[in-house]
Nucleic acid binder design. Structure first.
Length: 551
RNA sequence: GGCCCGUUGGUCAAGCGGCUAAGACGCAGCCCUCUCAAGGCUGAAUCAUGGGUUCGAUUCCCGUACGGGUCACCA
């Protein structure tokens, strides 16, 4: 029995690796083009950390005219959930980050280097595992779970490193004949990597983000093919990223400590190793401790959470990019209208330690993003959101599109646009009072602040509507009239005038405006009242004033 | 516990041997102003800690503390 025969015994049908090497030729890309991937497991909802990785990977690829692909890592069927792939694909689409290659629905894919779903690549992995067997770089291991548990217990008792390595690697040195015999006898087995590493030797690794990191060599004989015939992550990573031509592996830094193993695997398989960029995860402050955003405990870990709140995907991306490269913020300030693809993203400028997630900052970013939208866009996006999450708002918006558009147009489109909407779920509260049925069905709490005398209030309202308000007035004229009204009724026409001599007046023009504003809208704070009055129109203003007078 | 990584204001961070230690969010105050949202200005607030090296350390080296990651037939 020799290695070749053993390999044939284990994988009789596996193809020669030449077949795959030829089938997936080197990519023909321009110099410096970077190939990256997003390689999630369909084990739960799309995580904000996953989106972050995907965004970074995609940005880097786009910047170099490279390729960004999506590979689904579903080699653990036990953990797989229903719609896992669909959720990932849709999330990327929602964020306008659809991959150049890879899965585009839960079953379909595009690209020449597929399949992009690992469970469909079993034959490929087995071919490479067979190759390893033939080279004597892998071997079948017959250890049962009990044996492994026992080994671990002994190691812990002896206070030595746990794992399958060195003298503990019980089946590593079986003779080929013994191996073959057991296999033929039907003893269950898996395939292990036969590590040549030594723990007392160091390997050097230069991570694109983390910088120089030295590790002891890997000496663990890790499993490469599991009992179900599928590969472990490590083996699949080496085979796939080689065949798919990945130049930069951008992944979460929980993988950093596996780098020695991965480098070793690439080496033993005869592959050129990719560059690695290990990203620090997004953290959360939990009672003074930093910890990773958790799928279980933190609603904000789910990408869907932001959609539910109505934070535009563009805002989430900007925020994430901000965390990734802090220079982004300045760039954005200087280039408010450029696409994020034009930003000169630097992988090596990414933070080495994990950033705390900051909802307040996200909302600020979101506010700015929304302030740049046209009224038409605000209408479109908020309506789309409302249809999913707030049917009442959807009805309001749809009841009169032109009217809604006018409302969204208030103080929008100039160089200092209004910034009062941070998320679509703010919209209803922001515009509600502009719709008569909503305004009237709600019990308005008329609080006029400084001026509280009922008669005075009625006088202001009556006089204003009867003698002053004209829909055709320019803004300045409109305001001069309010001043005039204030003066006529004994209030200070200018706030300054009042402040200089507060005893001389019962109030000032601002107080008079407040009366009008409260009667008109039921609130003390609103956007520009001139525009609001124009939109509402004289008849309805009158009606609202009448309503206010009855209260 | 072993092995790795990290630690600049409340948060995100710039910095790369000599600076009054940028900027942003948040906070406070002022200005503008018919009220808000903005915008403008001002302010409070930071180099975890102890040793070195150096004429000089936030920056380089070592230790300590704290935080994080990893040690599966999970990814």
């Amino acid at each position: 029995m020799n290695y070749k025969e053993l390999a044939d015994l284990i994988f009789p049908d596996a193809k020669d690796i030449e077949y795959y090497e030829n089938k997936y030729p080197k990519r023909n890309l321009k110099e410096g083009a970077v190939v990256t991937r997003f390689a999630p497991s369909p084990t739960g909802f799309m995580h904000i950390g996953g989106l972050y990785q995907a965004l970074v990977a995609r940005t880097v690829a786009k910047k170099t005219d490279g390729v960004f692909f999506l590979r689904v890592e579903d080699t653990d069927q036990k953990r797989e959930i229903e719609n896992g792939v669909t959720d990932i694909v849709n999330s990327l689409k929602d964020f306008n980050m659809a991959p150049d290659e890879g899965m585009i629905t839960d079953t379909e894919e595009i690209g020449e280097y597929g399949p992009y779903k690992q469970s469909l690549r079993k034959d490929i992995y087995q071919a490479y595992a067979k190759y390893m067997l033939e080279q004597g770089k892998a071997y079948p291991c017959f250890a049962t779970q009990e044996e492994l548990d026992e080994m671990r217990a002994k190691q812990e008792a002896a206070k030595v490193r746990t794992g399958y390595y060195g003298v503990w690697a019980k089946y590593r040195n079986l003779s080929l004949d013994e191996m073959a015999e057991k296999i033929k006898a039907g003893v269950p087995y898996i395939v292990r990597f036969k590590s040549q590493g030594r723990e007392d030797r160091k390997i050097k690794h230069k991570d694109v983000i983390k910088g120089n990191v030295d590790f002891p060599e890997n000496d663990q004989d890790i499993v490469i093919i599991k009992a179900d015939g599928l590969p472990t992550y490590h083996f699949a990573h080496a085979v796939d990223d080689h065949l798919m031509g990945t130049t930069h592996v951008i992944r979460s830094d929980e993988w950093l400590s596996s780098v020695p193993l991965h480098l070793q695997l690439f080496q033993e398989l005869g592959f050129k190793a990719p560059k690695y960029a290990h990203i620090s995860p997004i953290m959360k402050n939990d009672n003074g401790n930093k910890r990773k955003l958790s799928k279980r405990k933190d609603p904000e870990a789910a990408v869907s959470y932001y959609e539910e709140l109505g934070i535009p995907s563009a805002a989430v991306k900007e925020y994430l990019l901000n965390i990734a490269n802090s220079t982004f913020e300045n760039w954005r300030r200087q280039n408010p209208d450029k696409a994020i693809e034009e930003f000169d993203f630097q992988l090596n400028k990414m933070s080495v330690s994990g950033a705390l997630f900051d909802m307040v900052k996200l909302l600020d970013v979101s506010k700015i993003v929304i302030s740049k939208y046209t009224a038409e866009e605000v209408y479109k996006y908020s309506l789309a959101w409302a249809k999913r999450h707030d049917s009442e708002l959807a009805e309001m918006l749809e009841s009169n599109k032109d009217y809604s558009l006018k409302i969204f147009g208030i103080e929008r489109g100039n160089k200092k646009p209004r910034k009062d909407i941070a998320k679509w779920s703010d919209v209803k509260e922001t515009i509600e009072y502009m719709y008569d049925d909503k305004f009237e069905e709600k019990e308005q709490n008329y609080e006029y602040q400084t001026i509280s005398d009922k008669e005075k209030i009625n006088e202001i309202l009556n006089t204003y509507i009867a003698e002053y308000y004209d829909e055709d007035d320019e803004k300045q004229v409109w305001f001069d009239k309010i001043k005039d009204l204030a003066g006529r009724l004994g209030y200070a026409k200018e706030v300054k005038e009042y402040k200089e001599n507060p005893e001389a007046f019962p109030g000032h023009v601002g107080d008079v405006s407040t009366v009008l504003r409260v009667a008109l809208t039921g609130r003390t704070n609103t956007p520009d009242m001139y525009e609001i009055m124009k939109i509402i129109g004289k008849d309805r203003i009158k009606r609202r004033f009448e309503l206010a007078k009855t209260k």
